[in-house]
């Protein structure tokens, strides 16, 4: 029982990481229906920006977080303008390939610029370990911090999308780009804003990921990015609370499989489950069924 609680705590903290990355992913997908494969790489650039802000500019954790967000937002906007915008009216497939191309470019460019070594991320926030249940379960201050930030970010995102004017415009673009244009929505700038917000979220995730796991690397974004995307799909892609639910679900499932079955088969179970969920309920756990327009 104590082990189970310890494992659930492990799952919850892993899940909050996935949820954090999935938030940005799901928002961008929700608005422009593009799997932004470069999300993980924008996260990586954010992590490096945070790293340099802390080590070279000697900033504290939160100022460094802001620097990272600014850098990622600029990068996100450039990527959108240069690589995605010209393809807005082409096939989904060309856009997908471009997204993967951008991702490869940033990964390998990162290897060139930052080098191939793992870089140790400074411990900008003190780590305190809390033990309970007779030392059988532990939780660290970093895990708590990530959990709190993830929840706050979700509410901020919900607020932006559902309560602000920009959010309204974003939703309009998501329903029907052409109609939104006719109604006077500046589609281009709405999409740019979407990318900017998504990139800022990626930067936060990158810095937290770096701090939590202590190393950063030019390829650090790809696997968490893919897992986060799966989390977003599990929860129902485009739905903000869904990304959250999917993230936690994925984290807990992975932990339980590793803890009670075998970690060697963890990814098999996760991807198998993904396929099953997609087949049974293609819109994800929190998704609504929509009927196809003829």
């Amino acid at each position: 029982m104590e082990t189970l609680i310890a494992q659930l705590l492990n799952g919850l903290s892993l899940g909050s990481i996935y949820a954090l990355i999935a938030l940005g992913y799901t928002m961008v997908y929700g608005i422009i229906q593009l799997i932004n494969f470069a999300h993980g790489e924008i996260l990586m650039i954010g992590a490096y920006a945070g790293f340099f802000a802390i080590t070279k500019l000697e900033l504290g954790f939160f100022p460094a977080l802001i620097v990272a967000m600014v850098v990622s937002v600029v990068l996100g906007i450039i990527v959108e303008r240069v690589a995605y915008k010209p393809l807005r009216n082409s096939t989904r497939l060309s856009a997908l390939i471009t997204a993967i191309g951008v991702s490869l470019f940033l990964q390998n460019g990162g290897l060139q610029v930052f080098g191939t070594d793992y870089v140790t991320f400074p411990r900008a926030v003190d780590k305190v370990t809390y033990k309970f249940l007779g030392g059988n379960a532990t939780i660290t201050s970093h895990q708590i911090l990530i959990l709190i930030i993830t929840v706050i970010m979700m509410f901020i995102l919900q607020y932006i999308v559902h309560k602000t004017k920009t959010g309204k415009a974003m939703r309009a673009v998501s329903y029907d780009k052409d109609a939104a244009l006719l109604m006077g929505v500046n589609v281009d700038s709405v999409i740019t804003v979407t990318f900017a917000i998504g990139s800022a979220f990626a930067a936060v995730a990158g810095v937290l990921l770096g701090m939590y796991y202590q190393t950063i690397h030019p390829l650090m974004g790809s696997m968490p990015g893919l897992k986060a995307f799966i989390a977003a799909v599990l929860g129902g892609i485009g739905i903000i609370p869904g990304a959250m639910a999917g993230g936690f679900l994925l984290g807990i499932i992975e932990t339980l499989v590793s803890g009670y079955l075998s970690s060697a088969y963890r990814d098999v179970v996760v991807f198998g489950l993904l396929i099953v969920i997609l087949v049974v309920k293609p819109t994800g756990l929190l998704g609504k069924d929509t009927h196809e327009k003829v």
Binding site: Y29, Q33, I35, R92, L96, F229, I230, V233, I237, A264, Y265, D267, V268, F271, G272, L274, I275, L278, V279, P282
Partner: peptide
């Protein structure tokens, strides 16, 4: 048989998952 009921990006992600499953197995 099961996955081709899915459309577009969902199919993409399901088939990607399947490729990973083969590799991990």
């Amino acid at each position: 048989l099961p996955t081709l009921r899915l459309k577009g990006d969902y199919l993409a992600i399901a088939t990607l998952g399947f490729g990973e499953i083969i590799r991990r197995l």
